[in-house]
Amino acid sequence: MSTTVTADTEVDVPVRTAYDQWTQFESFPHFMNGVESVRQLDDTSTHWIVSIAGVTREFDADVSDQVPDDHVAWRSTTAEVHHRGRVDFRPVSADRTRVDLTIEWEPEGFVEKAGAALQLDDAQVKRDLHRFKEFIEERRAETGAWRGEVHGAQETAPGGTGLPGTATTGTAGTVNPPMSEGVVGSDPDLRA
């Protein structure tokens, strides 16, 4: 039986800043408790290591749908872990954004099932989204950006052909011009 958790918050940054920060998956351990690491494998693929209540899991996930300044959706591709989610970004004003997060997964084992039954997962996701709010509001700027689009796991970008690997706006894991060039996680303020 799957568990679905929803959370929302408003952040005091423009929608582009909030969205761009969310595309920097390798920064997730800085505001998501239990996420030990996220490694960007390519524009749409990531490898996760999470540890919750003493249970460590590793899985791969792909971005399944992504539209700049609107939403990012993902799903696990590892058979043993069933996980998917979506985050939506809506401008409240020029400098304020509503962030709506939905995560669905299949709890395994006694600890995860007990956590889901007691709604501990709900509280954790809400705390993580609050930490995202604190993280981006303190910085006032994203640590990087990826402005490509993904529809049904096919990457498209303005000026591109719509085929995977043909994005002209940059690649996930790099900072797009006019920002300085760098790899996700290369920001010295984000190093552990």
Rank of each mutant, 00 (worst) to 15 (best):
H82G: 14
T97R: 01
R86D: 03
V99M: 04
E104L: 01
T77A: 00
E80G: 13
I49H: 13
P91Q: 10
S51D: 14
V111Q: 03
D60L: 03
E104P: 06
V87N: 00
T56Q: 15
D69T: 03
V67I: 13
S51F: 01
F59G: 07
R57D: 09
I52P: 00
D62F: 05
E106T: 14
R90E: 10
T97G: 04
D69L: 07
S51P: 02
A79R: 13
R96L: 03
E80C: 07
V63R: 04
D60Q: 10
R84L: 10
H71W: 06
T102Q: 10
T78E: 01
S51E: 15
P68R: 02
A53W: 12
I49K: 15
S76M: 08
V55T: 06
R96V: 02
D70C: 11
F110K: 04
R90N: 12
E80K: 14
G85K: 02
F110H: 02
V72R: 00
V92L: 06
G109Y: 05
T56K: 15
T102C: 07
A79M: 08
E108R: 09
G54T: 06
V99H: 02
A79D: 06
W74K: 09
V72H: 05
E108A: 12
A73K: 12
R84T: 08
H82E: 15
T97S: 09
D65E: 04
D69N: 15
E106M: 11
D65V: 03
R75S: 13
F110A: 14
D65S: 15
F59W: 15
V81P: 00
A53P: 00
R98S: 02
T56H: 09
G85R: 03
I52V: 15
E58Y: 00
E80N: 12
V111D: 01
T56C: 11
G85E: 02
D100R: 14
P91R: 09
D88G: 08
E58W: 00
Q66H: 14
G109D: 12
V81N: 08
V50S: 07
A94R: 13
S51A: 15
V50M: 12
D70T: 09
V72D: 01
T78L: 09
G109M: 13
R86N: 07
H82V: 15
W48S: 04
E104K: 09
H71E: 08
S76L: 05
G109R: 02
A73D: 02
R90F: 08
E106L: 15
W48E: 07
A94Y: 01
D65K: 12
Q66A: 09
A94S: 13
V55C: 09
V81C: 06
A73C: 12
R98A: 07
W74F: 14
D95I: 08
T56W: 03
R75Y: 05
T77F: 01
A61W: 04
D95M: 11
V50F: 00
D69Y: 13
D69I: 03
G109S: 10
R98V: 03
S51R: 15
L101T: 00
I49V: 15
I49L: 12
D60S: 11
W74S: 03
S64N: 11
R90Y: 06
E106V: 13
G109P: 00
T102E: 08
P68H: 04
T102M: 07
D62S: 14
W105L: 09
V55N: 07
